[in-house]
Structures are given as C-alpha cells and as structure tokens.
Design a protein around this nucleic acid. Structure first.
Ligand code: FES
Ligand code: FES
Lengths: 132, 132
DNA sequence: ACAAAATGATACCAATATGGTATCATTTAC
DNA sequence: GTAAATGATACCATATTGGTATCATTTTGT
C-alpha cells in the first residue's frame, strides 16, 4: 500500500530536474546521468507526462523535454492520478444488498473521510515546493 | 491504491458479525450464509485472525469462532497490519547517494506526515464503533 | 544526401501482490 | 464411528506494477 510508486517517484525526480534547468531542453540521456533510473522505463514515463500535458518534448538531435506548465501548477496528486487513476483508497466489496445502508455505513463514512483528507493534502504539494 | 483490501473488508465484516453474536460460537457456514464470501478464502482469513489473537476458535462439531478480545480493542489499523504489514504509504526508491539529504527531503517529509496521520486515524476506528 | 541523436509508438515480458482453490489432517459432539 | 467443524499447507489465477525491446519519425549538423 503506497501512495508514491516508482513511476510517480521517478516522475517527480525527473520533473524537478527539468524544472531546475529553467527552460533548457533536458534529454533522457542527461537525466539518467543524474539519476539511476532504467532508461526505457524513464522514457515511457516521460512520454506519458508529455501526453498528459505536464511536459513539452522536442524531437531530433539536441531534443528532450521542458515543462509545459509552471512548476507551481504541477501537483503530486496530478502525477498519481496520471499513473494510477483517481485516488480511491477504499472500495467497498459489498454491493447494496449486503451493506444494510451504504449511505450511512460507518466504515465507509470513516474511510471516505480519510481518503478525502489524503487527496487534499496530495493536491497541496506542488513541484516548486520540492525544488532546492 | 486501497486502504481496505478484500481480505481486510471480509475480516471486518466477519468480526462484526461474530461480535454481534455476543459470545455465541459462530461457524464459517453461518458467516457465508450471511455474507457472499468464497468459503475457502474466508476460512483462510479467519485462521490468520485466530493466529493473530483476534479470534478464538473451537474445533469439532458445533465449532467455530468467538472474539478473543473485546470489540472495542480491535482496530482497523490492526487488521490492515495483519494482512498487509505495517502501513507504509511511501517508500523512497532513491538511496542515500541520490537524495541530497534524506533527513530533510521535502517530499519524504510531506508524505511521511500524511502517512502518520492516516495511520493514526485508522488506529482510531475500532470494531465496536462499526456495530449496528 | 546522409548519419547521428533524440523522441513516438507499441508490443511484450517479469516480478509482485492480491484473490482464491483444493486437499488432507485433526478435533469434537452426538 | 460418523459427521461437522477448524488447522495446515500447497497450489493456482488475476491484476498491478516495473521494466525491456524494437522500429518509426523527427531534427541537427556535415
Ligand atoms: S459495507 Fe460497504 S458501504 Fe457498508
Ligand atoms: S528522494 Fe527519497 S528521501 Fe528524498
């Protein structure tokens, strides 16, 4: 049970590095020189980030990536969502007929509360706040 | 990413039912009559709960399970721990050499804060509070 | 024109965690 | 002694996550 998977973690590190380059185009080659990540895996991650509108990419020699939006507007919650879908920590396995009243189910209510709080906190962490 | 897996959910439901029987011995047969759970899977879960000291078991005809400790003292966090180990939502994939200073790593600090809060809240939900 | 260096797209495989089954041994009540 | 229950254990199925491989496309520099 993890909030931050490897994908998310690699993504955060890469985005931070790209953010610190302040507009200079950063290639995968440069990133793996900096971090110890599997090259093809990182490539896949960056491609997804590009498709999601977090990064801009430049093909060809001297190509690479830059941020597509300011670091201040990229949130950890966004990244988790991109790789793992919406944050849903509980998922009741009992259908209507088994839980006497889903609306007021004590367990569901309490787990949902925790879930909402976690989601809000993850939404409050932006990349800018993680830079040196 | 879920806080409550099927194992945990089944366990909670079963424990609640056993708690509501107020000391009467409850068999797996009775539980699957009440809930729609796969019999061998539920058996495995109950065996683990027994080994963990949550349930007491009685073999032989008319056997089954009762609570080993009061419902008030069984917490959702305990059950998650039994089936999935300690609650660790983050797990940094970067070793010392990559994170400039693990002690003050901004990401780690913030995720750890969330984790601690979640763990505390799950620790505050006991089975008694989930009974009808 | 062409080669080198980069990303784009896509298919595939590996490892792990979770969900679930099957079988036989043991105990107990009647 | 038999039926009905749990104990123990090995095994399998499915989903998620982590990771590789390959080829196509684009761009830069000579
Ligand atoms: S048991 Fe799932 S909502 Fe109550
Ligand atoms: S990157 Fe893991 S502790 Fe900082």
């Amino acid at each position: 049970m993890r909030l931050i998977s490897k994908k998310t973690d690699y993504a955060i590190k890469a985005i931070c590095f790209i953010a610190e380059a302040k507009g200079r185009v950063v290639s995968v080659a440069e990133l793996i020189r900096e971090f110890d990540m599997p090259r093809p895996f990182l490539r896949k991650i960056l491609q997804i980030l590009k498709k999601s509108g977090i990064l801009k990419s430049y093909k060809g020699q001297d190509g690479g990536f830059t941020l597509a939006i300011p670091a201040r507007e990229i949130f950890v919650a966004n990244l988790i969502k991109i790789f793992h879908g919406p944050i849903k920590l509980s998922r009741c396995v009992f259908k209507e007929r088994l839980c006497s009243d889903v609306k007021t189910c004590a367990l569901k209510v309490r787990i949902d509360t925790i879930e909402t709080r976690v989601a809000r906190e993850l939404q409050s962490i932006n990349i800018e706040s993680l830079l040196k």
